[in-house]
């Protein structure tokens, strides 16, 4: 058993705003193994994107990693100076963003944007870099990559642009790819193709994937393991099969119940009542208790992480399945 590619330990990324301290990520721990896909699921504002940016070292002020460790290749990213971080970014850890219409620079050609990504890290000739860029475009299924290299982003459709962004992430054969809702803005057929490509990539090259999404069906088809985040914390973590089939945390169960399904045609969808509380005024104890049907006085104190067997943990006083001590 080799060491995991990425280990996040008790990560806390806080935003010090005028209105108060927003604990966007508050004590998050998980790890991703080589060639595995970790799904990070949660509602908007649950802190999943901030977790991704923390791993990239791209948290902008007023945000700051206040404590915790992000271990990658034996080094702690959270304590790394900017200069070293830069050499890590794009080379060993790559990131794919949510909106493909916004991530490519509109005034630079695709080849410029790809070649610079290679040459920022490696001393290779332009021709060699160009050849690698072309191969990467071919790899993500862009037809006639040679001609497309000379095109500008606006000459691509949304799906094609996201493929270009993925190709850029693949350029330096990163060991870890952080994907922040990369398929949310795409239509389902394109989404399916990209998910398939990414899964194949992880298997073949041993790249670890951290897939951030709010879409449980994406997680179900792609990920090996899943972390469910709520209000800056991981409320449940385990293998995809365990978590989705027999959720322990009421919030996970609520998320699963909110997904429309063919089998439940005609029945009203279950929904989680209320909205996520403001990150500035979280309730004491379990942050979910104001929306939880099972909540009682015991939930007002911080629930500890409890094991449910086979690497599975959840933070709940009244879990839906019996804890395994």
């Amino acid at each position: 058993m080799t060491a995991p590619t990425l280990v996040v330990e008790e990560l806390r990324t806080w935003f010090h705003t005028r209105a108060g301290v927003v604990k966007a990520v508050d004590g998050v721990s998980f790890s991703v193994d080589r060639g595995r896909v970790m799904g990070l699921v949660g509602e908007s504002g649950s802190g999943k994107s901030v977790t991704g940016f923390s791993i990239m070292g791209l948290v902008d002020p007023p945000g700051r990693i206040v404590s915790g460790r992000i271990l990658f290749g034996g080094r702690d990213i959270a304590a790394m100076p900017e200069d070293e971080l830069r050499h890590l970014r794009g080379r060993r850890i790559a990131m794919i963003f949510q909106d493909p219409m916004m991530t490519l620079n509109p005034v630079l050609r695709i080849d410029t944007q790809m070649i610079e990504a290679i040459r920022a890290h490696e001393d290779v000739s332009r021709d060699e870099a160009r050849r690698r860029a072309r191969d990467a475009l071919g790899q993500v299924g862009i037809p006639s990559p040679d001609e497309r290299l000379a095109a500008y982003p606006h000459q691509f459709s949304g799906g094609m642009r996201q493929r270009v962004a993925i190709a850029i992430a693949l350029l330096n054969r990163a060991e870890l790819i952080v994907a922040d809702e990369p398929t949310t803005a795409l239509d389902v057929t394109i989404q399916g193709q990209i998910l398939f490509e990414m899964q194949r990539l992880a298997r073949q090259t041993g790249t670890a994937l951290l897939w951030i999404t709010h879409d449980l069906s994406v997680v179900a088809s792609l990920a090996d393991e899943v972390c469910v985040m709520y209000a800056g914390r991981i409320v449940e973590r385990g293998t995809v099969d365990d978590v989705l089939d027999r959720p322990a945390h009421p919030y996970t169960a609520g998320l699963i119940g909110s997904v429309p399904s063919r089998n439940l045609r005609g029945q009203p969808l279950q929904q989680i009542p209320g909205v996520m509380p403001s990150m500035l005024s979280l309730p004491a104890g379990c942050a979910f208790r104001t929306r939880c049907a099972r909540a009682d006085e015991a939930c007002a104190s911080e629930p500890a992480e409890r094991g449910f067997g086979a690497g599975r943990v959840a933070r709940c006083v009244h879990p839906l399945v019996e804890p395994v001590p």
């Binding site: 830069r86 990131m95 963003f97 490519l104 620079n105």
Partner: peptide
């Protein structure tokens, strides 16, 4: 977003700003 993406590629800040 393109600035963040350029930084995520590991480009030096001067290239992000001046190009």
């Amino acid at each position: 977003d393109y600035v963040r993406f350029a930084r995520a590629k590991g480009l030096p800040m001067r290239r992000v700003v001046f190009v």
